[in-house]
Simulated assay, not measured.
Amino acid sequence: MKASEIKKGSVIEVDGAVVYITELQVQTASSRSGNTLYKVRGRNVVNRQKFQGSFKGDEQVQTVDFERRAVQFLYRESDGCTFMDRDTFEQHGFDLEALESELPYLTEGLEGIFALVVDGVAVGIELPATVILEVMDCAPAIKGASASARNKPATLSTGLVVQVPEYLAAGEVIKVNTVSGEFMSRA
């Protein structure tokens, strides 16, 4: 596939190493003749080392086949998180660093989580598109504030901070987009 088709959660092969992509940044050239660059960050599946690289948009990238397995979030410890395969009951552990971008959305009983498995090894997790989280702390709600009014920061039950409309108050439950990290609606 072309580098322009790489997405977060893709598994590619780079110089013989299998890499799970955790971050993608698109850098568009300012000149007409310039190429768009796709900067990726990820983890080597075998030795768990960090990977950084960049590709031109039309550059060919070798993809790796992987399996999506439904998993359940079991528990979080000081050094990592454990998930259980819903079909085989096999447990998969990830260190906190490997789940850095997913941690703010993980809650007990969260449905719709998938483990990405390459050659029998879980390399990462895929969250559902949206999660429901409780607002723990924010500035007091302003009476008469409309949905199109200004936003304010709110700290959610997992520690994630998102911008929410002024009419929301602590204790309310909201829906958050896991891709953009933005407030979507009340739950």
Rank of each mutant, 00 (worst) to 15 (best):
R76F: 04
D87V: 09
I142N: 13
E182P: 10
I125V: 02
E111P: 06
R32T: 14
S148N: 12
T82E: 05
V123H: 02
P140L: 02
R32M: 13
V19C: 06
Y20K: 06
L37G: 10
F114R: 06
F51A: 05
A122F: 00
E100T: 09
R43L: 14
K56T: 12
G16Y: 08
D87N: 13
G124L: 02
A187P: 08
E182L: 14
A29W: 04
D85Q: 02
Y105V: 01
Y105H: 00
E90G: 07
L116C: 06
L103M: 13
V176E: 05
E102P: 01
K175V: 11
V45A: 07
G42F: 00
G109P: 01
A115E: 01
E77L: 14
G124Q: 03
S4G: 13
G9Q: 11
R69I: 01
R43W: 05
R41F: 08
D119S: 10
D95Q: 03
Q91V: 00
G57Y: 00
D85S: 03
S157F: 05
G53W: 06
G144T: 07
I142V: 14
S180E: 14
T36M: 09
A29I: 05
M184T: 13
S33G: 15
T63S: 10
C138H: 04
I132E: 15
A122K: 01
K152T: 03
V14F: 10
N47E: 03
V18I: 15
L116R: 08
S146T: 15
V117C: 07
Q25C: 12
S30C: 07
S10N: 12
G120I: 04
